[in-house]
Amino acid sequence: MEGLNEEGQWIVLMGLLVAVAMFFLALIVNQSALVGQTTAEGVLEFPKNDIRDLRTEIFDCVDEFGDTVDADVKKDIVVISLERKNAVVDFSVDPEVEISGGRWLHPVKIHYNNGVTVYDETVYY
């Protein structure tokens, strides 16, 4: 290697740096698919819309029946939730109580459990 010419060293070095930079950029692009997947699966797994919809339905029941919710309608909600949504659902509506001076509202207890997400709420409606 007596005749080794070192004049091109910087070009080689710069080429290497560019290659390493491109490698890391490719790595980021590669990881973005995984990040998107975990995000999407997190959103799909969390039953946000199911719980919202269940609450709306229970409030519709309270609108219609007050604190004496029809036993058949309650059974509809419990049985169909278990069969189609894989969720154990229970709710109860108590007689109106006075809230913060003159407002009479029903305490509604809602229980939801689909094995991954558990949701319990007492709401005055």
Partner: peptide, 19 residues
């Protein structure tokens, strides 16, 4: 090898839209 179809991103968007 992950493709966009495997990552459920479009499924998530479609389900949200439907809801």
């Amino acid at each position: 090898v992950y493709t966009p179809g495997d990552t459920h991103i479009t499924d998530m968007q479609l389900e949200q839209l439907g809801s």
